[in-house]
């Protein structure tokens, strides 16, 4: 589904990704862990097409298409979803209207007719229940006045509505209390299928108690330096990152 080969990227002349390789297949959950400054969020930004990042080498293909050649909206329409680390507050843009526009622009891209209003509302209710988001929040302006936990739940809610092939969760667990963490993780687990995949970027092992990964990658200095199964995360939690860095050297 996603193939990243020797990806190199920089921001304002500072090299962040230095030859990253990663392959994600349908049905898989990949966790990416690593110390601060390793390049985790840069990876998420480059994959989703955020401005200001320059790809200096390597490739990323998504279902055979050159991902890096697509506009952010085309990536989203192809089925890539980024759950933001810091969801943006957009006063005046209604959550529901925004989602309806998004759903229908994606459908148009796929050559489908707009979703009938009735079906849309049904879907909206169903997915709200999934992430335990009150209908009151869904009607408000996008993220405006939401608490940290509500913003993250709203991200998962949007992901549920858009049903992407690949979901990238950029530190979705940061700033969440235990209950919110459980709700967010439950949401992801319910969305999981043999046809889609997730990349979970996190600092802590805690989230991985709830979303069990098939692979755990350690990102350090712009490269994946170790890959293991879920036990690697437990080991990291216990020992920190230094032993891997030392091993690498």
């Amino acid at each position: 589904m996603l193939e990243i080969k020797n990806l190199q990227a920089q921001i304002e002349d500072k090299q962040i990704l230095k030859g990253l390789n990663l392959e994600v297949k349908p049905g898989e959950v990949h966790a990416i862990m690593g110390p601060n400054g390793a390049g985790k969020s840069t990876l998420a930004s480059v994959l989703s097409g955020r401005e200001g990042y320059e790809v200096t080498g390597g490739s990323a293909t998504f279902d055979g298409k050159d991902l890096l050649d697509l506009d952010p909206e085309e990536r989203a329409r192809e089925g890539l979803f980024l759950a933001f680390q810091y969801p943006v507050e957009i006063p005046g843009v209604n959550n529901t209207t925004f989602l309806k526009t998004a759903v229908n622009e994606i459908r148009e891209y796929k050559g489908l007719d707009p979703m009938p209003a009735k079906d849309f509302l049904k879907l909206l209710k169903e997915k709200q229940a999934l992430v335990e988001l009150s209908s009151d929040l869904a009607k408000r302006s996008v993220n405006e006045g939401f608490s940290g936990g509500e913003k993250k739940r709203n991200e998962i809610f949007q992901m549920a509505m858009l049903e992407p092939k690949l979901g990238i969760l950029d530190e979705t667990d940061s700033g969440l209390d235990i209950d919110a963490l459980r709700i967010v993780a439950n949401g992801v687990n319910k969305l999981k299928s043999k046809d889609n995949a997730f990349i979970v970027i996190t600092h802590y092992q805690r989230l991985l108690d709830y979303i069990v990964p098939d692979f755990v990658h350690v990102l350090h200095d712009g490269k994946i330096i170790k890959t293991g199964d879920k036990n690697l995360a437990l080991e990291l939690e216990e020992k920190g990152y230094d032993w891997i860095k030392a091993e690498k050297v």
């Binding site: 097409g49 401005e51 952010p72 909206e73 933001f84 943006v88 925004f98 622009e105 891209y109 949007q158």
Partner: peptide
Amino acid sequence: DKEALFYLQARGLSKTT
């Protein structure tokens, strides 16, 4: 707001929309 613009694009909306 560029960040808001990117947020909407990342959800599939064209830059114009």
